[in-house]
Write a protein that binds this DNA or RNA. Structure first.
Lengths: 172, 172
DNA sequence: AGGTATCGATACCCAAGGTAGCGCAACACG
DNA sequence: CGTGTTGCGCTACCTTGGGTATCGATACCT
C-alpha cells in the first residue's frame, strides 16, 4: 500500500527528504505510477492523511466530552509516527501553493469542520476558529520541536478551549 | 536593503516563488552576495523577520494588558504584507530541516520567550505553550486561508488566552 | 600607488517535482 | 484460443531552485 509506505518514509526521512521516488520505491511501485494516481506530491500526502485520520469520534454525549475527545483524538493522530511530519509538511507547502491549499481545505479540513458544526451546533466561523486553535497549536509545537505535544500540554489546551467554548458561557 | 526586497518579493510572489535569485535582483544585488551574507534562504528569512518584528512591546503595567498587547502586536506583525507569508514559509521549511529549526528557535523564538518569561513571571514551559497557542493559531489561519486573522477572531483569541493565563487563576 | 576586501557576473552541480514514451504483462471478451 | 485494451514498470528527460566556485572589476584604505 502506498499510504503505509508514504508514512513510514516520511517518518524515517522527514517530509522534505521523503521524495516521491523514495516513497514509490518503498511501496514497490514506480514513480510514474504514483503520478498516475495522484496529481502532485501534496495531493498524495493529503489522501494519505485522510486515510490515517479516518473519521472523528463524535459519539460522546455532552458538549464537554465531545470537545475533549476531539482534541485528544487530534493530538493522538498528529502524534502518530509520520503523521505529524506529513501534516506539517503539506501545510507548509500549501502556504505558497493555492491549489494545494484548496485540496487541503476541501478534502481534509471541511469534512471535520462540517461534522463539528453539526455536533456542536456552532456557526462556521467559530468552528474554523476552534480548528485554528487546536490544529495550529499542535502543529506549531510539532514544527518547533520536532516532537508531538506532551499530554500535560494537551490537557492544558483542552481546558483552555473548553473554558472558551463552554455551553453558552463563552464570550462573543 | 535586502530585507525590504525580501518582504516585497515574498508578498508579491509567495514564499516558494520568492527565490533567492529574485530577491537578490529586487535588492539590486547578486545572488552570490546574498549567500555571502546568509548561509541559507531560511537564515535570510529569519533575519528578515527579526528585523520586521523588532522587540515586543512589554511596557504595559498589568498582566492582562501585557498579554493583550503582546497578542495584538503579534497578530498585527503577522498581518503585515509579506511577513505572514515569510513566517509560515520558514516555519514549513524548518519542519524537515533541523538546522533551520535551530536557527528559528534560537534567533527568533527564544528572545521573545525570555522576555515574556521575565515580564509574566511564568516558567519556560508555560510560556512555550502560550507561544504555541498564539503563533500556531495565527499561522494556521494564515496558512489555510492566505489571509491574516480578522480582528474579531484575534479578540476571541485574546479572551481565550487571558482566561487561561489570568493571575494565578488558570488551571495547572 | 599598491594591496586588500568586497561585490557582480557567469557558469556550474545537484536534488527533486513532474512528464513522455516504450515495452511488457494481465485480463476481458468474443 | 487469439486479440485488444488497460495498467504498470522503466528509462530518459525537462525545469526549477538552492547552493558553490571562479574570475574580473571596483572601491577603499594606507
Amino acid at each position: 500500500m502506498v499510504f503505509a509506505a508514504t508514512l513510514s518514509t516520511v517518518q524515517e526521512l522527514g517530509y522534505a527528504r521523503a521524495t516521491v521516488e523514495r516513497i514509490a520505491a518503498a511501496a514497490g511501485v514506480a514513480k510514474t505510477t504514483v503520478y498516475r494516481r495522484w496529481p502532485s506530491k501534496g495531493a498524495l500526502i493529503v489522501d494519505c492523511l485522510l486515510d490515517a485520520f479516518g473519521s472523528v469520534p463524535l459519539e460522546a454525549s455532552g458538549r464537554t466530552e465531545l470537545i475533549t475527545d476531539a482534541i485528544r483524538w487530534t493530538a493522538a493522530k498528529i502524534g502518530e509516527p509520520g503523521v505529524g511530519d506529513a501534516f506539517a509538511g503539506v501545510f507548509s507547502d500549501a502556504v505558497s501553493d493555492p491549489a494545494l491549499r484548496e485540496i487541503l481545505s476541501a478534502r481534509l479540513q471541511d469534512p471535520y469542520r462540517l461534522a463539528l458544526q453539526d455536533a456542536l451546533g456552532e456557526p462556521r466561523e467559530r468552528v474554523l476558529f476552534l480548528i485554528d486553535v487546536v490544529v495550529g497549536t499542535l502543529l506549531h509545537r510539532m514544527g518547533m520541536t520536532g516532537e508531538p505535544m506532551a499530554d500535560t500540554d494537551v490537557t492544558a489546551l483542552i481546558e483552555m478551549v473548553l473554558a472558551h467554548f463552554a455551553d453558552r458561557a463563552g464570550p462573543a
